[in-house]
Each structure stands twice: as C-alpha cells, then as structure tokens.
C-alpha cells in the first residue's frame, strides 16, 4: 500500500508525536505542531495517537491512493476533496484504490493533519518518524514532500464516519492570547518596556514556521544597561549561549519576539524574555501570518492549571472517540 504525491502543497511533511530525548545531541523533539489535531486525526482513522501522518501548512497536497484506506483531516480548516468532491474535516472518510485526495483553500487555522489508516510507514530514526528538515533526518528522506514521492503506508483498517464534535475541539480565539511565564532575563528590559510588551497587539510575521513564530508590530524593547559578558555577542539581546526549551520567547536586537516552536534548536545566544505555556503552543501552530496576538503573563500555578485543563480536553476527546 502506498500513497503517491501528485503535488506536495506548500510545505507538507511526515510528523508524529516527536523525538524526545535527543536535546543533548542538539536535536529538538519536533513532531506535529498541533498535538491535539495530530492525536485526534490518528484516532479518527483507528491508528495509535502517535502514528505518523502528514502535516500540511497553509495549502494541501494532492495524493493518489494505490489501495483503499480510511482518511481523516483535522487541525486548520483545509477542506478535503476525494476526486473533486468535498469531504468533512474532523471526520473519517473512505478512499478507494485510484482515488485522488486534494484540498480546497484554507478557511481557518494554518496547519492541517492528514491521517491515513495504518499510518505512514517511513523508517524510524532515533525513535521517531518525525521529519526534522533542518537536520535532514527522519520522515521521508529527511525533507518536505515533493511531487513523485511514494509514501509507504502500514497495515491498518479504520472505520469511516467517525467524527469529533465541535464542542470537544479546542476553540480558536481572535486575537489569540498567548499566556507566558516571564523568564529569567525579564529584568534586563526596562519596566516601561515590559508593560508595553503585554499591552501591545502583535501580529504574526510572514516568518512563521516549524522553527519559530516571529511577531511584529509592538514597541521595541528597551534594555537596562549592562556590562557585556565575555563570549556573548555585542548586541544587548545577546547572552552567553544557553539551552532553552520550546516555547521560549527570544527577542533578537530587542525588536521582534520569536516564539520557538517544535523544530527550534536547543540553544543559542539570545536572551529569552519568557516562555509561552505548553497549553498554548497548539494555538500558535494554527496562527496564520498577520493574525493579531497578545502576550499575557501568568503565574506558574496558572500555567500548571492550564496544562491540566489542556490534558482534560484531550482526555475527553479520546474518551468520546473510544466510546
């Protein structure tokens, strides 16, 4: 069983729930940027939630199936079509041998997750099938899909007509509110600049991808004067290289915050003003360029409560699909 790539879309790659445990070798966890949509798409077609699927950004691919399968599309509103006929999102549907799956224009969100019963059976590299494009590893030949690729599909059988109702999905609110924990370099920016950071409405810049989301439109940060540490770069935003987890907010040159996402490197020399809480990282994955967003400070307890709420949302959806 295989799926032929007729056209790849803008940036479509094989993803799963990521490759944890290799930060110390400089390899990020990666995986589907919208974890909720990744897991649900798989469950809708009867796969393990961590099976490999396709993540399509802004624009869908066109695929041809060599054998019958069950398919589901979740995440951003990218309407699937089978041989030109529209199919619902968040609901599994059947495809026959020779069928073509294509997509209409994106109506909302940024990333769609296309799960196929049996999962995409590319080789496991360092514990995962996730594509890490920067490191050219995992997925299909370590890169985004190209026309002519043939993706191997594992054995599996899903049931068509399985769906997740809207009230069990994560709501997308505009302007997006990105909750964050102010970080250890917060003291390096002036009090007034810190206040402005939260008051301003930012917009997602065109440079928004799996590595990071850049935001634009707010006031530049003003830094407190300091003595430049040895080994750090000359800009006031430079620090001695440190490790940072995904979600970290860097502000190179103090002008435009970048929220590091799933494919971000594990360290670097720019200061972090804070970290977007894990519960809101799926939300960022679905932001299109030019979407307004605000940053909101939370306490550690609030962050943990949000994390628990997020886990509950996932558990409720999984329970519904299991029942």
């Amino acid at each position: 069983m295989a799926v032929k790539v007729i056209s790849p879309g803008l940036s479509t790659s094989v993803q799963d729930l990521g490759r944890p445990g290799y930060y110390h070798l400089g390899i990020p966890e990666g995986g589907g940027m919208d974890r909720f949509a990744t897991r649900i798409a798989n469950l809708l077609v009867g796969n393990d939630p961590g099976a490999a699927l396709l993540e399509a950004t802004f624009m869908g691919p066109e695929l041809e199936f060599t054998e019958a399968a069950t398919v589901a599309v979740t995440g951003g509103e990218l309407p699937p079509k089978v041989n030109g006929e529209e199919r619902p999102t968040w609901e599994s549907f059947p495809v026959k041998a020779g069928d073509r799956l294509s997509f209409g224009y994106l109506k909302g969100g940024a990333r769609a997750y296309i799960a196929i019963s049996g999962g995409i059976d590319v080789p496991v590299v360092l514990g995962s099938r996730t594509t890490y494009v920067l490191g050219a590893l995992g997925g299909f030949e370590g890169r985004v899909l190209k026309a002519g690729d043939e993706l191997p599909i594992g054995a599996g059988s899903g049931k068509a007509g399985k769906s997740l109702p809207a009230n069990l999905r994560r709501p997308q609110i505009s302007p997006a509110e990105l909750r964050m924990l102010p970080g250890l370099y917060w003291h390096r920016i002036t009090e007034a600049a810190g206040k402005r950071f939260f008051e301003d409405t930012w917009k997602v810049a065109p440079e928004a991808d799996r590595i990071g989301y850049r935001f634009r439109g707010g006031a530049p940060l003003e830094f407190v004067e300091r003595e430049q540490p040895f080994g750090a770069g000359s800009d006031p935003s430079n620090i001695v290289d440190a490790c940072y987890p995904y979600g970290s907010i860097q502000v190179p040159s103090g002008t435009e915050p970048i929220v590091l996402h799933r494919d971000a490197v594990s360290g670097g020399g720019y200061m972090m003003v804070g970290v977007v809480i894990s519960a809101d990282m799926d939300l960022i994955a679905q932001l299109q360029p030019h979407t307004p967003a605000k940053f909101a400070p939370v306490t550690l307890d609030q962050a943990l409560a949000a994390r628990a709420d997020n886990a509950k949302l996932m558990a409720r959806a999984e329970e519904y699909l299991a029942g």
Binding site: L181, Y244, S248, V275, I277, S278, L300
Partner: peptide
C-alpha cells in the same frame, strides 16, 4: 549560580560568571 524556571516544565541552572570554568 542562578536557578530559574524556563516555563513550567524546565529549569535552567547557570553560572553567574560569564567566564568558562
């Protein structure tokens, strides 16, 4: 040293000296 949270599931421990030791 300084130990600080980097989000709700990570801690960064770093030297207060900017020189390699």
């Amino acid at each position: 040293i300084t130990i600080s949270f980097s989000g709700g599931s990570a801690l960064l421990l770093q030297s207060n000296s900017s020189r390699f030791d």
